[in-house]
Amino acid sequence: MPTLMINGQPHSVDVDADTPLLWVLRDILGLNAAKFGCGIAQCGACTVYVDGKAVRACNLPVGLVGERAITTPEGLDMADPIVRAIKSAWVELDVVQCGYCQPGQVMAAVALLRTTPNPTDEQIDSAMSGNMCRCGTYMRIRAAIHHAAGELA
């Protein structure tokens, strides 16, 4: 098992190669911000970055990660203007309700603005519809992404 690079720190873990990254993060390393929601990449609550790309940690065997850089919601850098803009927009617009899906939503939204600085509604829908929210905060997520994009413009 290669050493995992998580939020810039190396971690050595002793688990079977088929163990999804999510459970290494949560149950072995205690990094709890990425959430378990479905286990089949349908809900997006477990979204993390691997080499900067948003992936579902519940469905990524740790044996396939290799030495690529993993960023969890804990590793989002507030010095990054996009991270700061998204998180501030989420707070400003009071997006959260139960909050369980929101670290995943924030990860997806930050990834979206990195590639698409001023997304249309359609682009937001395209990028965010894989992240489920049972409380139904979609309206505010959409608005907050626009708000953040406006702050960054």
């Binding site: 709890n32 911000a33 990425a34 919601p73 804990e74 998180k87 989420w90 707070v91 400003e92 009071d94 997006v95 959260v96 909050g99 929101q102 670290p103 924030v106």
Partner: peptide
């Protein structure tokens, strides 16, 4: 503003 916004956004 909600009191639990920031911690839910940060994942803490």
């Amino acid at each position: 503003h909600r009191l639990d916004s920031q911690i839910k956004v940060d994942g803490t």
